[in-house]
Amino acid sequence: MTRPRLTLPLGSPLQLLLLACSFALSAYAGVRLLDGEWFEIALWIVGAALVHDLVLLPLYAAADRLLVRASGPRRTWVGYVRVPAALSLLLLLVWFPLITGQVTTRYTAATALPADRFLEHWLLTTATLFAGSAVLFVGRRRRKPTAPRGR
């Protein structure tokens, strides 16, 4: 009666139809996309998903968990570190090539703009974010010295 099924059930035929349309469109563009360094391009697409899901996300999730653990049971200050750190790392992630200076030569040659400002601006922005967070933290603690929130 409960013989294990060896074949997959079909699922919703309407969804199947929709997915078929979607794959047809992606394939039409895909053959044109892969006309060139096809292996490298496919690697970039699959690699982008894998690197994000299996490297970047676990890394920042683990860092956040460490931070929460280090903060002890009261956790009153976690947010004040987490938010500026997350924002600073976000800026680094987006502007990594400019901040790390790996495009300095081409950038300056093409645009006639100096490239050394990016690292400086990122550090200053990071400092501002942490300083702002510290001011907020101190300000809020002063206002409620006897009734800290949290459990």
Binding site: A24, S26, A27, Y28, G30, L33
Partner: peptide, 8 residues
């Protein structure tokens, strides 16, 4: 082309 692959 990547945009069209993605958009599908």
């Amino acid at each position: 082309y990547g945009a069209w692959v993605f958009f599908g």
